[in-house]
Design a binder for these strands. Structure first.
Lengths: 243, 243
DNA sequence: CCTTCATGCTGATTTATATCAGTCTGGAAA
DNA sequence: TTTCCAGACTGATATAAATCAGCATGAAGG
């Protein structure tokens, strides 16, 4: 796959038109291709000298583990997403990451990224946008946990995943293939697995969305959007800001 | 106050040593000084052409309002913090901001910031760090809402504020002056104001922390840190809160 | 082939927190 | 000086979601 069609390029292009210098510089981020098995721990919380990656294929998740063993999933990474960026910017990583499926990713060295800012300032802007978009998602998840009921929370989460996957060209408005278990959903939504199950049943019986056998089907996407009061503004998908 | 002693410079210097070119470029961010009254809406969710600011004096808060009128406070901004950065990167702002106290701030134009990346690449890195630190805080708040009880959540929140204020030179390990009401705490922690009150009483009666008359006093900071399992790693500071 | 284990699923019970419906206080406005 | 109001505070009750204690299924492994 050429750099022009990589999921990251596709995502960044939703924000800014990249010049050929930007693209050449971005290509350097893709020199260290790596493969990992499902379940592999990519980044470890509290450790120094961790790597960052750009995900090309597969799903990962970032999370924090509390002293009592409970886990809070922060977000899932899909193709085109950075993984562990904060672990190279910070002294010690503030979070862990693991592969949900087997994945293909490019390892990004801190030096590569910092050097690139001198060579292609507009790329710096694009990366700042990507990080801000990740922040916007974390913020929306915060609102999700703080103020929405379990049912609305689930609806919102599934719609967000759908929107993100659509942007990088996987899945459409009828649904998407999803490798997550109900335990993943529980850890992401701050619910127990038992309650996740009940909520999914409720949404299915209401004819809104079906989560079964590795597939999320939007049975009534309008109803689902209405229930979740879902607005994609925070994902900033609406075409380039700069040109 | 010279740019060398501004809270933002102080904060960024905790991450990277800024060159004289970086500092000159950063100084350009401080040309448009503005004052606002307490309660002033700085940034409006869903609007385009919003401004970003660097806060010099006073407190602000960023939040989202849900269709049912409920509000989730995302974070409070204190001197040295950016305010509304995503509102200039994104087409429409994904959040609102308002002044909690009267504030002094510098307005930052998108063009100033993007131009600065070409002139001072290291400044781009420092700003990326600052944004990542904001993201790390949002993530920690996410964990707070998702997995911690009301009491631990409150303890964690007050300790985080203490650590942040100490970094910019306001407050110390005995406590800090705090202009927030119990309603602010409720909106930030995803609790009802009634429950916030009960939790504060509990913490006070346990001799851990007192929140009263505009002041937060750490009565037993070790005990509070133990209760909250508070670790400053995610703030990427040099030193811990205790010292 | 049988066992094991991860995942999905369910009813009964408990608990944390919300909601309701107030009181009390101190400062600002009239 | 009285009235008003925001903010702090409290008891009683309601409820969303957790926890407990299972069963069912299908894939993986010996």
């Amino acid at each position: 796959m050429s750099i022009l069609e990589s999921p990251l390029t596709r995502k960044l292009s939703a924000f800014v038109a990249l010049s050929s210098v930007d693209l050449e510089t971005l290509a350097k981020f893709h020199r260290r291709r790596r493969s990992f098995k499902a379940g592999h721990q990519m980044v470890a919380e509290g450790e120094t000298h961790q790597s960052a990656f750009i995900l090309a294929e597969g799903w990962a998740c970032s999370f924090k583990v509390l002293p009592d063993g409970e886990r809070q999933i922060i977000d899932f990474q899909i193709p085109g997403d950075f993984l562990g960026l904060r672990s190279i910017l910070f002294r010690t990583s503030d979070h862990s990451s693991e592969a949900v499926t087997k994945i293909e990713a490019s390892e990004v060295l801190a030096a590569d990224m910092f050097d690139s800012f001198g060579q292609a300032p507009r790329l710096a802007t694009a990366i700042l946008w990507a990080v801000s978009r990740d922040e916007a998602m974390a913020v929306e998840h915060l609102v999700n946990l703080g103020r929405r009921s379990a049912e609305v929370r689930m609806a919102h989460f599934l719609l967000e995943l759908g929107a993100r996957l659509k942007l990088v060209g996987v899945g459409d408005k009828t649904g998407f293939n999803c490798p997550l278990t109900q335990y993943h959903l529980a850890d992401a939504l701050g619910l127990s697995a038992v309650h996740v199950n009940r909520v999914l049943r409720q949404l299915r019986e209401d004819g809104l969305v079906t989560f079964q056998r590795g597939r999320v089907s939007f049975d009534n996407i309008r109803g689902l959007i209405a229930l979740a009061e879902f607005d994609t503004a925070y994902l900033d998908h609406d075409g380039p800001l700069l040109k």
